[in-house]
Amino acid sequence: MATQKTAASDLAVGGAEEPWGDAELAEVRAELEADVARVRAELDELATDFEGLLRNPGDGAGDDQADVGNANFEREHEISLARKSAEVLRQSERALERMDDGTYGVCESCGGPIGKLRLQAFPRATLCMTCKKKQERR
């Protein structure tokens, strides 16, 4: 568990927002740390499943094309889930790092405040709403 290096009240907030309170930031940190633990467990389970599949892929004898196609679809789906989980893990760890170094709440694109309410709703956010909308339009 990372130690909090920056005071909650020193983190960026939107113009009309109250500064972060210690309890508010602790709640967001706990949520992110729980996400990290959950996703790591998911990825470990997926890795174990993949290892088992690689050790015993089956010989394919007697499988028709539908069975093979279904198995390939399921494997691709699991790989896609693993990629998404790995991205959530990366984002959550990055948010915790930003809390520690004092940049949590600062938009990585324009340098303005992301907004405390936005971060409470989506703790992994790295862009303010204006920059996020611009990014989605591209």
Rank of each mutant, 00 (worst) to 15 (best):
N72M: 05
A41E: 04
V68C: 09
L25F: 04
L32M: 10
A82G: 10
V68H: 03
L46I: 12
N72T: 10
R40E: 15
L43A: 08
L11Y: 02
D64Q: 00
E74H: 11
R38G: 12
A61F: 05
N72Q: 10
N72H: 06
E31K: 10
R38F: 15
E45H: 09
K5P: 02
L54Y: 03
T6Y: 09
A34N: 08
L32Q: 07
A71I: 09
S9P: 01
R40A: 14
D63E: 08
A61S: 13
E42Y: 06
V36T: 08
G60V: 02
G69W: 00
G69N: 01
L11D: 03
G58N: 05
D64A: 03
E74Q: 09
G69F: 00
K5V: 05
A37M: 11
L46H: 15
E24R: 06
S9Y: 05
E18M: 14
L11F: 02
A26D: 08
V39W: 04
E45I: 03
T48F: 00
N72C: 01
G60L: 00
A16Q: 07
G62E: 08
A30F: 07
D59Y: 07
Q4D: 11
R29E: 02
D67H: 14
H77G: 13
R75S: 04
S9D: 03
A12T: 01
F50C: 05
A37C: 09
D63G: 11
E33R: 08
E51A: 07
L32T: 15
K5R: 11
D44W: 02
A16V: 00
S80F: 13
D64E: 00
L11T: 00
A82P: 15
L81I: 13
S80H: 07
V39I: 09
D67Y: 04
